[in-house]
Structure formats: C-alpha cells, structure tokens
C-alpha cells in the first residue's frame, strides 16, 4: 500500500470493490482476450449479484471489457456504448460453489471467434484476482505482464517457457502451476517484470503440447 492508495485512486463511484474493482476485472479480461469483444455472457455471484445494480457493477464490468479504466467518466454509459458497437451482452447469475463473495464469470468471444472464460474476484480497494481461466484455477492480480499457458501435463513445457523468457531477458516475478488431473490439462501462470515480445508468444503457441497461450500485456 502506498500514499496514493490512501488519497486515491481517482475513480467513478460508488464502490471501490463493486465498481472500480469490477471495471478492473472487465479490463483485464478484455486484455486477456486480446482482441475486440464480439459477445459476452456476464454472470454475477454473491454480493455482486445482490447489490450489483445499485453499485453499477454490470456497467463497470462492461466498461472494463471495452477498455475503460476505473476513472473513465463513460462507465455509466457503457451498456449503450457496447450496443452502439454491436457487442452482444447477456447478464445472468453465476452457478459457483464457495466462490469469493464479489465474483463475476465472463464468457467472452472475440471478433475472430476466439473464446475465453474468466472468473474474477474483487478483493476490496479495487484490487482484484483472476481466479479461473477456461475452467482451471489461477491466481493473479493483473498488476504485472502475465503469461498464461495451457498445456498437456507432460514433462518439458515449463522449461520451454522459462528458457524462452530467460532468452528474452524477461524476469519472472511469480510462477504458479496447476493441473486438473495427472497427465490431463495443466496451466502455468507467470507474472513477469518485463513485457514479453509478441513473436515469442506466437512461437510458444506453435509448440507441441501447448494448447493455448493467453497473455496480459500492460501496454
């Protein structure tokens, strides 16, 4: 926490968790999709669902998806802006068990047909956590350039990724590994201190056993 977490941030109200945090979840999700959104199913859970209308949570999530940041004064108009841009948005209730009380599930499709499913949690004071990507548990804040790699659970993939990063002089801040079952699908999440070059990400995508590469660039 620094001085400007105390005086600040500048944000559109009314709530740092239910509004500003929701914008951040939408924003990071849009960045992870990495192309303009064509359609979004947005499912709310817990307190997001119960008090979302009064807090503008739905508008905030959509605003974030459109690339707005928490201080963007267009947030209250995001639903009509999305409509003008021809983006289809459907809201609903999330069926989740024991999720964080301020959670949203975003099921996104981009203009090229690319899809992405994200569960984001708003932790308070506009900090967020991306808790799930395409059905597999994750855990990252979106404060760093973040690489998410879905791969088959087999030896060698971690080395491929980390040696590529070393080669590009990208330092790893945190690294997490998850899998749904032995030999099944695995995910690695790497938060980095530097941005990863685009062509290195393309290169990763074509490796055998790598199923999907998602990258959060802060640029």
């Amino acid at each position: 926490m620094n001085l400007y977490d105390i005086i600040g941030p500048v944000m559109v109200g009314p709530s740092s968790s239910h509004t500003a945090g929701a914008v951040r979840i939408g924003y990071i999700s849009g960045k992870l999709l990495d192309e303009p959104v064509k359609s979004a199913k947005i499912l709310l859970y817990g307190s997001f669902l119960a008090t979302g209308t009064g807090h503008g949570t739905r508008k905030a999530l959509v605003a974030g998806l459109l690339g707005m940041k928490p201080d963007d004064t267009r947030i209250p108009d995001s639903l009509s802006i999305a409509k003008e841009q021809g983006i289809s948005i459907i809201f609903g209730e999330a069926q989740m068990k024991e999720a964080h009380p301020n959670s949203a599930e975003l099921i996104l499709q981009g203009v090229s047909g690319k899809t992405l499913e994200i569960v984001g949690e708003s932790l308070g004071g506009s900090r967020i956590n991306i808790a799930r990507i395409d059905g597999i548990a994750t855990n990252f804040s979106g404060d760093y350039p973040t690489l998410v790699v879905h791969n088959l659970d087999q030896p060698g993939h971690v080395t491929e990724v980390t040696s590529m990063l070393a080669h590009k002089s990208v330092n790893i801040a945190t690294m997490q590994l998850y899998r749904n079952s032995r030999g099944g699908e695995a995910v690695m999440v790497l938060e980095c201190d530097q941005e990863i070059p685009r062509d290195s990400i393309k290169w990763l995508e074509h490796l055998e056993g790598i199923q999907k590469v998602t990258y959060l660039s802060l640029l």
Binding site: I7, G8, T73
Partner: peptide, 15 residues
Amino acid sequence: SNACMKRIVAAPTAG
C-alpha cells in the same frame, strides 16, 4: 456524486 457514479477521489475510501 459518488452514489450517482460520478468520478471521485477515494480518501481513504469511496464511501
């Protein structure tokens, strides 16, 4: 203004 989704400065919180 905060309740009406205007832009404010959290100090220390939005509330």
